[in-house]
Amino acid sequence: MASTAKYGDTVCCPYHPEAYLIEDYRAGDQICSDCGLVVGDRVIDVCSEWRTFSNEKTSTNPSRVGGPQNPLLNGSDLSTIIEVENEASSFNTYGGSKYHNHRSMTSSEQTLIHAFREISNMADKINLPKTIVDRANAYYKQVHDGKYLKRRSYEAIASASLYIACRKEGVPRTFKEICAVSRVSKKEIGRCFRLIVKASDTQVNFISSKDFMSRFCSNLNLPTSVERAATNIAMKAVNLDIVPGRSPISIAAAAIYMASQATNDKRTQKEIGDITGVADVTIKQSYKLMYPHAKILFPNDFKFSVSIEQLPQF
């Protein structure tokens, strides 16, 4: 163990008291510049923990403490909100709360933070990337600043914003999928969606069965041959107007059912319904419309394990 000499409060080398000490921040040591003796160890590194590639022309230093700023918030977003639970330990002997939040944020900013957190939590539950979260936050901010939906809850607007962002990014989710991770009803999400599109003049592309086919078949563990056949069945059924008035999701579910029944990788209506969110009766009704045209709906190169005549009939 290295010996250490001190003159007053200064650490120095016992053999070369006046020698300059070199500080090795990586190892946390203080080394004598004359003899190389380690005279101090476990020195705290006060530098930043990462290398900074900043523009020298600016006066800001991004390596200082604090999280990254959110451009959608007016402040630097360094506030802390203490949630008080309804427990005895949270209150003093007079019944007052022991913890108090500083009112440094306006109610509008607090609503934004709660909404952004809600969007992030919903996106995490259905494995959506950050690009969609950022886009949903931007839509919510636009609605919030425009004050389009004053009487709607922030949870409903956040859910609708996430639904719009998914469609804009080309990875649409159904209302039922958003509703499953939200705290509001499917009806309320749909109502907010229509109001946001109308008020903000946002153009949302139409969805088709093809947009959901890959994800549904993957979740059902179906091979690519079934996916291609189901996609072909759904597209032809729409082009030939065989399933008028049916939603793209219902058509996709019925097409998957028909394609799987013609192979050894069969899936029941209930299994498909659990993944797609479509009721068994709805799948059955769409399938009944497709069945009479099955010969022209399947791809020409499809390899049948079960003939069309042996497909289920309802």
Rank of each mutant, 00 (worst) to 15 (best):
E56F: 12
E177W: 02
K288D: 11
N205E: 11
V278A: 03
R152M: 13
I251K: 01
Q142M: 14
R267F: 02
M290C: 12
F91A: 00
S59K: 14
F216G: 00
C12V: 13
T93L: 08
H102R: 10
I242M: 07
E227Q: 10
I251H: 00
F302W: 08
T58I: 14
T93A: 14
K266N: 03
P292T: 09
K150V: 07
N232I: 05
S33T: 01
K125V: 00
A165V: 06
V238E: 15
S108A: 13
L78T: 15
F304R: 00
T52G: 04
K98F: 06
C12Y: 03
N121I: 09
T4H: 02
V184A: 11
R51N: 04
D201L: 10
D41H: 14
R152I: 06
L220K: 04
P129H: 10
I242C: 05
E155F: 07
D301V: 06
L149Y: 05
K270A: 15
V238N: 12
G36P: 02
A253L: 03
A254K: 03
G95Y: 08
A234I: 06
G245D: 08
S159P: 01
M213Y: 08
P172M: 10
C35H: 05
V38F: 04
E109L: 03
I164G: 07
V181D: 00
D9P: 01
R246T: 08
K210Q: 09
I157L: 03
E49Y: 02
E109D: 11
G67W: 10
R173W: 00
E271L: 07
E109G: 07
T174E: 00
L162D: 03
I233R: 01
S182M: 01
E188D: 09
I113Q: 06
A259K: 03
S76Q: 15
E169T: 05
M1H: 13
D9H: 09
D145M: 12
L240E: 12
F298L: 01
Y25N: 10
S48I: 11
M1N: 08
L37S: 12
R64E: 11
S182Y: 10
D9C: 03
M258Y: 06
A255C: 07
E177K: 09
H293M: 11
M1A: 05
S209A: 12
A229S: 12
E83Q: 04
I242E: 06
I82A: 08
V171D: 06
Q142C: 04
Q310K: 14
M1Q: 10
S260P: 09
C192D: 04
S200L: 15
L128I: 01
A255F: 03
S305V: 02
H114Y: 12
V38G: 04
I31C: 10
A254H: 05
A199Q: 13
M290T: 15
I126P: 00
Q69E: 13
L72S: 01
Y163P: 00
H100I: 15
I196D: 02
C166E: 06
V84M: 03
G146M: 06
A156E: 11
N205G: 08
Y154H: 07
S161M: 10
E83S: 08
